[in-house]
Simulated scan of single mutants.
Amino acid sequence: MKKLFLILFVSIFFSCNSQGKRAVVGETEYQRELNAVYKDASKSPLKKRDLKKFKGLDFYPVDSSYVVTAKLIKTPDTPFFEMATTTDRKPLYREFGVLKFTLQGKELSLTVYKSKEEYEDPKYEGYLFLPFTDDTSGDSSYGGGRYMDIYEKNILDDNTIVLNFNNTYNPYCAYNEDYSCPLTPRKNHLDVAIKAGVKDFKK
């Protein structure tokens, strides 16, 4: 009888405990993974007061029309330059290439970058930096622009690569001014409204 009572007690305890935990929300695996990071106090850029009430980031509806194939025109031997940030920090980047693609009936282009750190640190090998602003910036999306992670290994033999604007994210500065974030170069403004990916954070 005691053993049965103990089993019931443990079962009820863990059942209540699991119900008390907040489930990770998100429409796609990318959204759930991003929300999991922001929910984790050891990794999250959120301030303590924002983390306490955090349920999930706000995203535009997932839209397959914002998944495009881009042609990469590489720009070899470009010099490193100091990229402006939200602080006095000036990280060194170089232009890796220009991505050309069609979206909403318009021919568009974005410059993709690679930092000096990415050349020197093995853990960043193959990582490319793609910041952009668009006609939603400062309105429904973060005014400083959004980022997209792309990788050299995903560039096909014909120098094309898939860009998924649903999988974009804000720089940490959108959540906490203590971070230092690269500012999107003016040449990377898109004259269309990219209603995909993460929205601005409402503090």
Rank of each mutant, 00 (worst) to 15 (best):
N176L: 14
E117W: 09
K90Q: 15
P76S: 07
N154Q: 10
T87A: 09
E117D: 15
K48D: 15
S140W: 00
F129S: 02
K199Y: 03
V62R: 10
Y113D: 09
K39T: 13
C173T: 11
S141H: 03
Y60S: 05
D88E: 15
Y151E: 10
D158V: 06
K48N: 12
A174R: 11
Y147P: 07
P185G: 08
L6W: 01
T85V: 10
V192F: 00
D149L: 07
L108D: 05
I150R: 08
Y119G: 01
S109I: 05
D58C: 03
Q31L: 03
K203H: 04
N154S: 14
L130T: 07
N159W: 06
P182M: 00
S65H: 03
G144H: 00
Y179H: 14
Y147Q: 12
V68W: 08
F201W: 14
F101N: 03
T75M: 12
N188G: 09
R94C: 04
Y169F: 15
N164D: 13
L128M: 13
K114F: 03
C173W: 07
K106L: 05
Y127Q: 14
F129C: 01
Y169S: 07
T168M: 02
N188L: 03
K71R: 13
G20E: 06
Y38P: 04
V37Y: 04
T28D: 02
E177S: 12
T69L: 01
M1A: 12
K71G: 05
A36T: 04
A36S: 08
V98L: 12
K123R: 06
G145F: 06
L51F: 08
V24P: 05
M1P: 05
Y66I: 02
V24K: 06
D191N: 15
